[in-house]
C-alpha cells in the first residue's frame, strides 16, 4: 500500500481543516463516522464537492438529551431512520453492534450534510494514495484537490496501518 506521502495535493491532518474555506474545491474526507460527523458539515458548507470515505459508522443522536443507557441506541436508530430516506445510505451509516460498542455521539448535522448536493458517502475501503487522490477497492481512482485525514482514520498512522485498523474494527 502506498502511503499519504504519495498524494501531491493539499493534505490536512487532524484539526488542520478548521477555519478554512474550501471554495471551488473537491475534498475527500477520510475518517470514521464519529469524526466525519464533525468535519463533513463544516467542509460541505464551502466545498464544491465532498467525497466522504467513511471508515466505520457510529451512532449519532441529534441533541444532548440525557438518556438512560438502554434508550441511547434506539434513539440514535430513530434519528437515522427519520433523517435518511434511502435504505442503502442508511445501511452504510448503521454501526455493527457486535464490534462497535461506542456510545452515540451528539451531532445533528451529519446526515443532512451527507444528503446535500455535491456530497457523496463512499464506504469502499481506500487502499492507496496516488498524486491526484486516492484509490479505493472498487477499482476507481478518485481525484480530489484536498484530502482531510481524520485523527482517528486508519490512514492517519501509515507506519502501523494493520494494528490501527484492528483496533477500530
Amino acid at each position: 500500500m502506498t502511503g499519504t506521502e504519495e498524494y501531491a495535493g493539499l493534505l490536512l491532518r487532524a484539526d488542520e481543516w478548521r477555519g478554512r474555506a474550501f471554495t471551488g474545491m473537491s475534498v475527500a474526507v477520510l475518517a470514521p463516522g464519529r469524526e466525519a460527523a464533525v468535519i463533513v458539515p463544516e467542509v460541505a458548507r464551502t466545498a464544491r464537492e465532498v467525497k466522504v470515505f467513511q471508515e466505520e459508522p457510529d451512532w449519532l443522536v441529534p441533541w444532548p438529551v440525557p438518556l438512560p443507557g438502554p434508550l441511547r441506541r434506539p434513539a440514535a436508530r430513530l434519528h437515522l431512520r427519520l433523517a435518511v430516506k434511502d435504505p442503502w445510505i442508511r445501511r452504510r451509516l448503521t454501526p455493527d453492534g457486535r464490534f462497535n460498542t461506542r456510545r452515540p455521539r451528539v451531532d445533528g448535522r451529519y446526515y443532512a450534510a451527507l444528503q446535500q448536493d455535491g456530497c457523496t458517502l463512499i464506504s469502499w475501503p481506500i487502499y492507496a494514495f496516488v498524486p491526484e487522490g486516492v484509490r479505493s477497492a472498487e477499482g476507481i481512482e478518485h481525484h480530489v484537490d484536498c484530502v482531510i485525514l481524520g485523527a482517528a482514520s486508519v490512514h492517519a498512522a501509515p507506519s502501523i496501518p494493520a494494528q490501527r485498523e484492528e483496533s477500530c474494527a
Binding site: 500500500m1 487502499y127 492507496a128 477499482g139 481512482e141
Partner: peptide, 12 residues
C-alpha cells in the same frame, strides 16, 4: 486480509 490489501488493483 493482509494479502488481500497487498493485491489490490485499479481500473486505472
Amino acid at each position: 486480509l493482509q494479502t488481500i490489501k497487498d493485491k489490490q488493483w485499479s481500473l486505472a
